[in-house]
Structure formats: C-alpha cells, structure tokens
C-alpha cells in the first residue's frame, strides 16, 4: 500500500457573512497517494481554493481530520509547511524584485547555503526559460512568465508535495501547454501534485485521479475513464454512401437494439455503444455479413465535459446563457 500525501476526512469550512453562515466545504474526504497528480475539478465558487488554502495551512478548517505529507495539519503546521510548495491563483512573486532575486529570496527563506541557493536559482531560470528575463523586475513580465517564475519559486526548496491552484487560468494555449509539460516532469521525479482547475481538458491531460467538487461536496471521484463511464452518451457514428445503405443499416441495427438515430440528409447513423473495441468489431462484423459498406466511422466516448455538466446539474443553466 502506498503512502498518502494527503489524507482528509470530513473537511468542513464555513464563513460568516451578512446573510449568516455560508458553508464552503461540507464534509470533503480526500486520499491522494504519493507521486501522483490529483485534480480537484469544479466550477467557480465550488470551494477549490478554500480547500487548497486549508491544506496549505493558510486558513484553518472548522472540522475534519487532515494529514498532509504525514503531518497533522493542526498540530504540526510548521512541519507541513516544510514539506509543501504552493503556487496560488494570484501570482506570488515580488514584483519589485527581479526574477533571480525572487528565487534567491526563496533560497534564503528555505535556509539553503549561499552557493547552493545561487546554483538552484540559475538551474531554475534555465529550466523555466527565464535566463534572459532573470535580471529584470518581475513587474515587467508577461502573465506566462510570471506564472513560470511563481512555480520556479515554489520549487526552490524541492517540496515533496506541490499545490497548484488553477495554474493555467488566464494563460494562452502555448503557455498552458508548457506549464503542463513542467507539471508532468515534476511527477517523474516522485513529487505529488494537488491541482485545482476549472478546465476539464487540463484534468484529463494531467491527473491520475480526479475529484469533482460542487457546492462544497465531492460529487464524483475516480480516473478520467471511470468518470466518463458514469454517464451515458457514448455512440458510434456511421456514414454511408447513399440512402439505401443507410436504410439497410438502420433496419439492421434498429431491429436488434431498438435504437439508432438516423440523419438522412447527412447519411449518418448513430448507434449507442460504450465505444470499446469489442463493440466496434461486433457492429462492423454485423454490417459486413449483410454487405453494407460503411464509408466513414467515428467513435464518440463521453468526455469530461459531459460528466461535469451532467453531474454538476448546470447543463440547463449554461445552455440558457
């Protein structure tokens, strides 16, 4: 059994405002094995940032048992701080200092020896493509550069567990891809990553396990594949050369399954399916037997978008907008 980098049971947090108590986290359980990427996915206001703030010792939970990096979050907060690195949603760089000075500041605060700190700063500037910008104040950096510097600063002390709170929000596609590459490299070296995002694509690309958070509760958890299997929506789309073939095919599969939505003008037929190789082979074999030629075929498996929208029950609201 692998060790858990994060183990949380019944995490609770509410804030008091003028409308009374507002529950932000309502009993969240988390289990993140070491050396994996765990993604907390949810819409704005779901409680993602609050979760990160609690796990990274910034704010206290109202209730729940939490161990981070093997330490009790409440009683050993300083040990937790020694083991983690945090890159928050808002850039945590000193804008008046240069990139290099920011990294050296982190090295000093991590109590690295002078020479070691300089070496590490240089290495990180190279790794994050900031060598040229290293001597300029961070205020002059672009959003992507600032985010890279931010993450580089988090890495100075080689933390075992890294929190990334919406690391690519507001970045252009190229910067986003480069950030993904960096995150994947980190995990190769055995680091655990706790990532929050509102982009399904990002969770799908990076995470070993995904938890869906909505209104302070986890509504689903599993690998991307497991989550996709939770909801219907998979089908095989067949395109035919003419209406005769389409009709024949429809008759064939329709007779067997009672389903099969046809779009005569596009000459396509949708057959419900889980999209597995076996199901595709079976369908094609059936059509082959009757000599019905298929011009084109596409397999559609539900993506995380379907999962997300179905499970968070926001499909209606979103489509009305």
């Amino acid at each position: 059994m692998t060790n858990l980098a994060i183990a949380a049971n019944g995490l609770r947090k509410s804030y008091r405002d003028k409308d009374g108590d507002k529950v932000v986290l309502d009993g969240v359980d988390l289990a993140v094995p070491e050396g994996t990427i765990f993604s907390l996915l949810g819409p704005n206001g779901a409680g993602k940032t609050t979760t990160v703030q609690i796990l990274s010792t910034l704010i206290r939970a109202d209730g729940g048992q939490v161990q981070v990096a093997g330490y009790d979050l409440n009683r050993q907060a300083d040990d937790v701080r020694g083991a983690i690195g945090v890159t928050g949603q808002y850039s945590a760089v000193d804008k008046l200092l240069t990139g290099e000075e920011n990294l050296l500041l982190m090295a000093d605060l991590k109590h690295l020896p002078k020479r070691e700190g300089k070496r590490r700063a240089k290495e990180l500037l190279e790794k994050f493509d900031l060598v040229e910008a290293g001597g300029k104040p961070a205020a002059t950096y672009s959003g992507g550069m600032r985010r890279r510097l931010d993450l580089a600063m988090t890495l100075v002390g080689d933390p075992r567990l890294i929190f990334l709170d919406e690391p690519t929000t507001g970045l252009d596609p190229r910067s986003r891809r480069s950030m993904w590459g960096i995150v994947r490299d980190l995990v190769k070296n055995g680091v655990t990553i706790f990532l929050t995002t509102q982009y399904l694509e990002e969770a799908d690309e990076l995470a070993d396990r995904i938890a869906l958070l909505d209104h302070g509760r986890l509504i689903a958890e599993g690998t991307a594949e497991e989550l996709k299997r939770l909801i219907p929506g998979g089908h095989i789309e067949l395109t035919f050369a003419d209406t005769h073939l389409l009709e024949a095919a429809r008759h064939l599969v329709g007779a067997g399954t009672g389903a099969g939505a046809a779009a005569p003008e596009a000459l396509t037929l949708q057959v419900p399916s889980d999209g597995s190789v076996g199901a595709v082979r079976e369908l094609l074999a059936l059509l082959d037997e009757r000599s019905i030629d298929v011009a084109e075929m596409r397999v559609h498996t539900p993506d995380l978008d379907d999962v997300f929208l179905t499970l968070t029950g926001r499909q209606q609201k979103e489509s009305l907008r």
Binding site: L58, D78, G82, V86, A92, D150
Partner: peptide, 13 residues
Amino acid sequence: TEGIIARFRTMRI
C-alpha cells in the same frame, strides 16, 4: 494585497 505574503505564510519561516 500581494500574493507573495500568502506564499510566505505557507513557508516554514
């Protein structure tokens, strides 16, 4: 108001 202060708070300093 700067994020760097939040960073300091999550460090063992």
